[in-house]
Nucleic acid binder design. Structure first.
Lengths: 240, 240
DNA sequence: CGACGCGTTGACGGAACTCAACGTAGGTGG
DNA sequence: CCACCTACGTTGAGTTCCGTCAACGCGTCG
């Protein structure tokens, strides 16, 4: 809950890893100091829930490090992951009453949290920040709509292939030891169940599709969490 | 293409049907005049395409009257409807290069169009408009994410029931002869194929689900395009 | 009247789900 | 250190739901 006592009034923002990519990118030093004063850094452990669906929207946050999932569930308890939040992504529902989805960390994560009311006020007073938030929200809406095509119209093979390509692209920058990325090896931050929840499938179907692609020499699966893309073209064909 | 010659320089905005609900709601008369000067009213016929997926994002628009669909398709040509645009909704991709989805009118529609570059400039100079656009985009993102749960985790019966309830709610205000709405009668602005494209189903499955619900006395189908909700509770049970 | 578009219904097959057993990796304690 | 346990993942068998293909009904328009 509390910020580290060793740096009580430090301006975290200036040294922030996502300083140039997050919604605060266009703020000048004075504005940044003001934003810093209403925000708090917080570590979230893997598996820890940061926001609960349906709660009053008290908190919003910026992702600094790590990967988190946004999810919701049916009345019967079947889960659907609505999206993944990477560093510099924004979490929570500004200008809203209720948190519309749950947020849970998939890896150890570092987030920069704000009381929603503080953030709303700050945003309204700083159009450049609000503009950044708008651009980010528009991009997220585009991404979400593209995912609807996957959920509504793709079969299991297409879903899994599309997922692997997307993860390879999005994970590349972080693991960007260049050769590692081009070799197509990656460590999945999601369990099979979570992959299934992203794709609207069952765990067994995901497992079968992965095994099938391995037997067809399109991918390799050195361990549970590792995937190697052996034949990117083959994956792309399957994602069509 | 052209505005009506009978009202060459009139300020459409002042008498606009969505004046108090669309993103222009917070503008003062002077700002409204400025916005009016860069916008054009345009009629779109039912079935006419307003924006094409993948085109350069030249135009953005506000819906004044009518209903339009946003859609995309797979490489194989299977369509997925991403959302419906009602009066006061915003269309197109501000601050973006490409139009990320196609837009086609389902009913005769009236839209207020802007050159995207003009609109972008105006928005950046008028934070109140940009704020409205942000609120609208955030709400649309919430709505879109809720639809992902339907696409990914619901069976055909749940999808159709959810769709009927949603349409009844959203169509009510316009047809709001009060008693009409409460009787649960509505005229669907979508064909069976379009309903299927919204729900990620086939036309036959939609038809079968509707017939089944009629046989169970949950709804009635007086004609192709009409639906009467006979037992709202029954529908709600099925949408769970 | 016939043709066409749209919707309904039926028969069938297959893709994905369900249920169940088994395998495997990682962590714990004796 | 190894046996054990547990969580996670894989694989198999059977079932179900929905998609596909096809025939038919109905209203509309030329």
């Amino acid at each position: 809950m509390d910020i580290s006592p060793s740096e009580p009034t430090l301006n975290f923002c200036q040294a922030c890893a996502v300083r140039n990519r997050a919604i605060c990118a266009d703020l000048d030093p004075g504005e940044l100091q003001a934003l810093n004063s209403i925000g708090r850094r917080r570590k979230v452990e893997a598996g820890e829930q940061l926001l609960w669906e349906g709660d009053d929207a008290i908190v919003v946050a910026n992702v600094v490090e790590g990967l988190l999932k946004l999810s919701t569930q049916t009345a019967e308890g079947k889960e659907q992951i609505l999206g993944l939040a990477y560093p510099s992504d924004f979490l929570g529902r500004p200008f809203g009453e209720k948190t519309p989805y749950g947020v849970e960390a998939l890896t150890p994560a570092l987030v920069c949290t704000f009381q929603r009311t503080d953030f709303d006020r700050f945003a309204r007073e700083h159009p450049r920040l609000e503009h950044k938030l708008l651009e980010r929200t528009l991009a997220e809406l585009d991404r979400t709509r593209r995912w609807m095509l996957l959920l509504g119209r793709m079969n299991a093979e297409q879903k899994v292939a599309t997922f692997l390509l997307e993860m390879a692209d999005r994970l590349a920058p972080s693991t960007c030891g260049a050769d590692v990325g081009s070799l197509g090896q990656m460590e999945l931050p999601l369990s099979r169940q979570q992959i299934a929840d992203v794709l609207g499938l069952t765990i067994e179907t995901v497992s079968r599709q992965l095994s099938k692609m391995r037997s067809e020499n399109v991918i390799d699966l050195p361990s549970r969490r590792e995937v190697v893309i052996v034949d990117r073209g083959g994956l792309e064909d399957r994602s069509a």
